[in-house]
Design a protein around this nucleic acid. Sequence first.
DNA 1: TTACCTCGAGATCA
DNA 2: CTCGAGGTAA
Length: 658
Amino acid sequence: MEEKIKALQDKLNRYNYEYHVLDAPSVPDSEYDKLLHELIELEAAYPEFKTDTSPTVRVGGAVLDRFRKVQHDTPMLSLGNAFDEDSLRAFDKRVREAVGEVEYMCELKIDGLAVSLKYEDGKFVQGATRGDGTVGEDITANLRTIRAIPLELTSSLSFEVRGEAYMPKPAFEKLNEAREAKGEALFQNPRNAAAGSLRQLDPKLAGKRNLSIFLYSVNDLSGLSAKTQDEALKRLDGEGFKTNRERRLVDDIEGVLDYVGYWSNRRNDLDYDIDGIVIKVNALNAQEQLGFTAKSPRWAIAYKFPAEEVVTDLLDIELTVGRTGAITPTALLKPVKVAGTTVARASLHNHELIEQKDIRINDKVIIRKAGDIIPEVVRPILEERTDQKVYKAPTECPGCGHETVKLEDEVAIRCINPGCPAQLVEGMIHFVSRTAMNIDGLGEKVVKQLFDAGLINDVGDIYALTREDLLPLERMGEKKTTNLLEAIEASKANPLRKLLVGLGIRFVGAKASELIAQEFGTMDEIMAQPKERLVEVPEIGEKIADSIVTYTHHPDFRALVDKLKHYSVNMTEEVQEAASNAFEGMTFVLTGKLEQLTRNEAKALIEDAGGKVAGSVSQKTDVVVAGEEAGSKLETAQSLGVSVWDEAEFLEKTGRQS
DNA sequence: TTACCTCGAGATCA
DNA sequence: CTCGAGGTAA
């Protein structure tokens, strides 16, 4: 029986491959279904022979209660963008200057969701979303239902492959037809449908969505012994993966431009959406030579198709007062479809921009999605203009009516009334937000509600709220009140850094707050520091230090801190021991351009480990860290016999990945 | 900026 | 059933 089940599993896996990867089924669907049901029954009768690479797992297993976080073995970077021929040529020039003439692999840029698939000994073991590039979500159960993903490879490799999961247009249309028939809400576009499907906690639902995937890169090429991107893709084909067949290897930038031109005209002929073309240096040794910048490889670039432009009416300009008093204008538009979504508003950034573009209320305007996400007003259509009046920047704050000012070296127009209610509310929203005190159940709406009810006028008042205050409010029942009060109570224990972020000192965000809190440990200490001491903290400059001093010396700030203390809000930070003291007593000199770190980050790493950074090389220097294009300092180091580390060595010594 | 999923809870109706 | 919050992705 074991052999029979195994044979059936193999046969169905082969049919799957033929259908979903090769797109060339050798048997009718009915035959597939018949065999699949047979296998389901056999596996039910003999569960000891059911494996996790059996085709039956593709229907989806147990419902999850959440997605786990997973750390990527190597970060999933994004690519640099090119929007026109010039930037593609500039990319080519940079490449050739570094490594000489190269071939390029051109691939379609699929509009879906980036995912990573991990295989161990040839078996699919984990699939994850891109997340922030470092940590993503474990969506293995949903990915298993994608029939184009091989559950078992031809060879028993252990590696990670990356690709783009997507919903083919025909599947999207069918799905929406079915949803319409059932009276359910329709999906806006295939990308959203694919994203939604992969976020289902019930893999059975995801399994019914007919997703597919194209794989395009391999994390660790050593196992594949490929020397080019072309070979790597062919090896992926050989292992049973689905790669995109429209790729083309070209000799030079002219070939790239040719390919780009070709697909710019034919993107609609495909049965999946693409949003551009990815160009990669083909030879892996050239890729290695080119290396990476802090956020993307230097050997690849993404050409983005020109953003779709549409015309709509600019109905009004909305003014919002931020927590710093900056008044920012937003265009309220007659909703229109652009690039797959409905756009109703677009930031106008500042009043200078409105003036420059001469945007007026009631204009017909051209809008587009810059970088495919953020909508922007390109320009008004002057021919269609009738009697629209020139738009005047506000002289009064829309929140409190106080006069506005425009500082010499800023573009923003500001309300300078410290008691401005709009600013107060924004400040409180910031205080309770995730990056700051993270009070669950206290979102924007509820903060406004509490403010309007006269219950909170500053963040200190949040800690004075009682059951009796909350219960009478709209949509505030027994349960919500209890939860909210508990969340407020819990927030008192936040470390000092969170409180610092929450207090909204200008230029002091998550990073600076952590540094300052770690350095001084308590709020009182911080408030007692002169500027000169603050700038001694690595990565804290004049601007931040000035801001901290100004804020912390203000009587209102002091009063607020006292009020928070009165409610026993924690004002201390647990100071972490330095990660290591490997560089204790050592003096470093940095020279040349580092690829993965900025100079400040490198400096911080050295200081964290107990070392010092000097400006010039002398006998007292212990190590010179040399980046690219290192100059005379490197020569001096060599003549003095000082050790020289390259960036990889430096990262390794600091315990970072190289 | 928009769209999607999930959760918890309040509101509504039978 | 509907709403708000919270999270994620492009």
